[in-house]
């Protein structure tokens, strides 16, 4: 009797396992069957938040479910990314990624409880390069005007920018190092306040993300002297790229590269479904039109390419992180 019941238990267990093995496959065939939640590790209203909300606006028809945006801000993104790393890899919990910010956090605070390989990167959607900005009537007509003035170590020029320890600051300091500038980087509470300080005449020059500067560039109040990105952008055709302008390679280490990731362990087919859905979003005309209006530069990279970018970004930040200390 005892043996019989043991056998029965075994059979039941086997049946259960089989069922268990079958059911997910079945479910995955029509994944997703409920809304997908995307965590944004920043407060509402920021660059990542606006991008994710725009994606969510267009995602439903390609995903077959709604994409719900949830903000989990704190500690420069650390709290949201830690939560994402620890969430269940079932494809329903994904999150916004922002490079190099994720790498910088890890480099500045080694005790941070998430690792960059805790995530499986789904795709990249946006690139947001850093620009040097001046008011339209500035004495700096070109980036070279500024470089000449900023080469005097006796008289440091104030540069406003998001900080401290931000991607913008890293970009500025990396450029300053290559060009041999001595500037005084003044941290502001985001790219928006740095641009306000520029408009209000508190500083003569600011470093900021392109997306934050776009509306004031278009209004003709400020102009971008140079963009720290290797390829010219159609959004700002007149602005030269740094490497071309200065004739030496300047790493675009601070360029914000924004996409989506899932916790590692997500089944490959679910990852592929999500990647395909977001690829279609990023190719749809409605999305592209609105993104352009909002000053978002769309650059889709698939999962493999994004993974490679993370490795590259890590290497670049590691090499330059001492600039931030």
């Amino acid at each position: 009797m005892a043996k019989f019941s043991k056998n029965m238990t075994m059979i039941a267990a086997a049946a259960f396992l089989l069922a268990g093995a079958i059911v997910p496959v079945h479910a995955q065939a029509d994944f997703p069957t409920k809304p997908v939640v995307a965590t944004v590790p920043f407060s509402p209203g920021g660059g990542n938040d606006i991008l994710l909300r725009l994606i969510s606006k267009h995602a439903s028809s390609f995903l077959g479910q709604t994409l719900v945006v949830e903000n989990k801000p704190g500690a420069g993104g650390q709290i949201g990314w830690t939560a994402l790393a620890k969430s269940r890899p079932d494809g329903y919990s994904i999150g916004a990624t922002s490079l190099p910010s994720m790498v910088i956090i890890k480099a500045m605070r080694p005790e941070t409880p998430f690792a960059l390989d805790d995530f499986k990167y789904i795709c990249n959607i946006q690139i947001d390069p850093i620009v040097w900005l001046v008011k339209s009537d500035s004495r700096f007509k070109t980036a070279n005007d500024f470089v000449i003035q900023a080469s005097d170590p006796q008289k440091k020029i104030n540069v406003a920018g998001d900080g401290p320890q931000s991607n913008v600051q890293l970009q500025h300091l990396a450029a300053a190092k290559v060009l041999g500038l001595s500037t005084n980087y003044v941290s502001f509470n985001g790219s928006g306040p740095a641009i306000t300080a520029l408009l209000g005449g508190q500083v003569e020059i600011a470093a900021a993300t392109l997306s934050a500067a776009m509306s004031n560039i278009e209004a003709g109040k400020i102009k971008a002297l140079v963009v720290f990105n290797d390829e010219p952008l159609s959004a700002i055709p007149d602005v030269p790229t740094a490497s071309k302008l200065f004739g030496k390679p300047i790493p675009s280490v601070g360029m914000a590269v924004r996409g989506l990731a899932a916790p590692k362990g997500i089944p490959d087919d679910k990852l592929a479904k999500l990647e395909a859905a977001f690829r279609k979003v990023s190719e749809s005309k409605a999305f592209l039109d609105e993104a352009k209006e909002m000053g978002i530069v769309v650059k889709f990279m698939g999962s493999a390419q994004t993974e490679a970018h993370v490795k590259e970004s890590t290497k670049e930040v590691e090499a330059l992180k001492d600039l931030l200390k």
Partner: peptide, 27 residues
Amino acid sequence: TLGIPGNAVSAVMLGGLMIHGLKPGPG
């Protein structure tokens, strides 16, 4: 007028505005 939010709520409002295709600024 400037695309600079006065506080956290207006930052979100601004985001909402942009998603509806409106650009802050004199325009």
